[in-house]
Amino acid sequence: MTPPAQGNAVIRVESLFKAFGSLKVINDVNLNVNVGETLVVLCRSGTGKSVLLKLLIGLQQPDSGSIQMLGQEITQLAEKPLNEVRKKVGFVFQNAALYDSLTVAENVEFPLKYHTALTVGQRREQAMEILTRVGMQDSALMMPTELSGGMKRRVGLARALVLKPKIMLYDEPTAGLDPITSEEINELILKLQQEHAMSSIVVTHEMHSAQRISNHVAMLDQGSIVFDGNFSDMKNSDNKFVSLFIKNG
């Protein structure tokens, strides 16, 4: 269980704590993600996966600890520099969180509209390009309420990708999808990593996804990390939670 080299970490989390009242959701978590690496965080449902990701981009404030994204300590940042970091991080929400008053294409164009000087035509062009990449080009003019769960997930992915981020954070990207669609999404994540040297964190409870896409795996039990290493090393772990997860995964 060797933590990756400290040198080129794009995400570095140290002794992170977060509690809601008496409920300790994140309890002394340390994580490192290097350039071009995919970290899969495995844990059970309802135990703080979404909270962890939201902490990473400052959507929630930790009680204590340090979070460095692309070399910046985001727990200390003012609004403007924090937004600069957020522009370089794509966040795929668990339930897609599409803007329901906008069409699919407008959803994808939304970050471009506020962060670039592109014309309307150029924005549409880029949005279509990315929608094509996730296989949603034919639904560009539909409203989010007309989409299925899997389609929403892809549009959410497209929207997260449109500013060409350096880091992607995925909140259960394949949960609740059929195996074939899951596999397609896994492949997309892999392709992004390979073609664009994207660094990512994927939180999930699905062992299969972890095996497919991870460079390394961290296991979270009751807010603490009980395993951090390669997927293949997991079966050698003597932690009870880890073996239980493997047995039932």
Binding site: N83, E84, K87, P111
Partner: peptide, 18 residues
Amino acid sequence: VTEQIDAIEASGINAFRL
């Protein structure tokens, strides 16, 4: 409730101002 405000913030836009 549907995290759309979080999504605006996550893309580096001040949701309060918008």
